[in-house]
C-alpha cells in the first residue's frame, strides 16, 4: 500500500486531509466568487456597450 507510513499513518493522513480540505474550500469559494462577479460585470457591460467611458473609470 502506497499510503502506509508505518505506525503513525493515520495521523499523517488525517492531518494532510484536513489541511488540504480547508484549503480546497478556500480555493473553490475564491474561484466561484470571482466567476460570479466576472459574469455579472460582463452582463452589465453587454447591456449598454456604448457607455464605455464610465465603465473604464472607477
Amino acid at each position: 500500500m502506497i499510503l502506509d507510513f508505518g505506525k503513525y499513518s493515520f495521523e499523517i493522513l488525517i492531518s494532510y486531509l484536513s489541511t488540504f480540505s480547508l484549503i480546497l474550500i478556500l480555493v473553490i469559494s475564491t474561484y466561484l466568487n470571482s466567476k460570479k462577479v466576472k459574469k455579472d460585470l460582463d452582463k452589465f457591460k453587454n447591456k449598454d456597450p456604448n457607455d464605455s467611458k464610465k465603465s473604464q473609470s472607477i
Binding site: T30, S34, V37, D48, K54
Partner: peptide, 29 residues
C-alpha cells in the same frame, strides 16, 4: 505561492465587485 495566487484573485474579484457596485449605483442601467 498558493497564498499569493489566492490573494491576487481575491483582490481582483473585490475590485471588480466594487466597480460593479459603483456602476449599478450611478443608475445608468
Amino acid at each position: 505561492f498558493l497564498f499569493l495566487t489566492l490573494l491576487v484573485i481575491k483582490i481582483k474579484t473585490e475590485i471588480q465587485k466594487r466597480r460593479l457596485n459603483i456602476l449599478l449605483s450611478t443608475g445608468n442601467t
